[in-house]
Amino acid sequence: MGEQKDVILSVRDLTTYFYTRQGVVRALEGVSFDVEKGKPLGIVGESGSGKSVLALSILNLVDEPGRVERGEVIYKGKDLLKMSKRDLDRLRGGEIAMIFSDPMSAFDPTLSVGSQITETIRRHHTGVGKKEAKEKVIDLFQKVKIPSPTERFDEFPSRFSGGMIQRAMIADALSSNADFIIADNPTQALDVTIQAQILELTNELQRTLGTTFVFITNSLPILARYADHILVLYAGTVAEYGTKKAIIQNPRHPYTQGLIESTPRLSGERLARLKTISGESPRLSKIELDRCIFADRCNEATERCLMKRPVLTSVKGSDDHFSACFLASGTMVRV
């Protein structure tokens, strides 16, 4: 991938397995990608594709019975997987923050929202007094557009609506001057008009504070609007990765094409039937490594796909578009 890019996070061959009684679950297998500073990356995948495990693996938060098997997560030149626990603790919740789909459960219901964010600030900035921290929280509440921030400071999470608590969660992420925020399905529980508010807010923060976001979601339409690069995850592996434009206008993996075509459209003629992808995602405990994992659901699969696993390769020499399909550079036509 290019030379002059300002890469903030570089993931290489990230592989995470879970050892369960039913056998080894290959949740992630050789995932590689780069995130450039200020250019939001969107990771899209269906349930069970390994999206959340990817987020946890990046932050080195995978717990028993799971284990990061191999790979590198280079953040600003340092490998998070090799860092000491102390350094890692300083980084996580500090420079790197995470936002969850269910912010209500991320806050302690018995403490006021303001006091919990104060805690984050004081933990990551030694020497900040309580009063100073409180002022900072109120300032952050203003930044994320929580109305009447001073009154809101002392309120408990249960008094916040779904949209408001997500704003508070973002304020918490920003409180430690986060540079890099992983948002795991940040608007899943929200209505469309509130979802638009939150996503537009992240957009604005990106511009004003230079924060880099990684959005993890199952909605390609959201990424079409808010991401710069898109990574399509399928059954724990990268199916396709590239600029938003490349992925949406010129998808070179049959799975990406299927995802786009099975999404109901808002414009144009109504279709009698939607295009579908036959079958369902494979179980991660039953993945065969010596063939294409999408072959069973693919209309264009040939014998080659059943004998060898396609690796992520550049599409026609582009340094910004990669697909794990034998047909990617060839004659694959969009149907």
Binding site: Q195, S219, I260
Partner: peptide, 14 residues
């Protein structure tokens, strides 16, 4: 109007 405008779609995104 607002509802339709707020819905992210693949076409609108680009």
């Amino acid at each position: 109007h607002a509802l339709l405008s707020a819905v992210p779609t693949i076409e609108k995104g680009l």
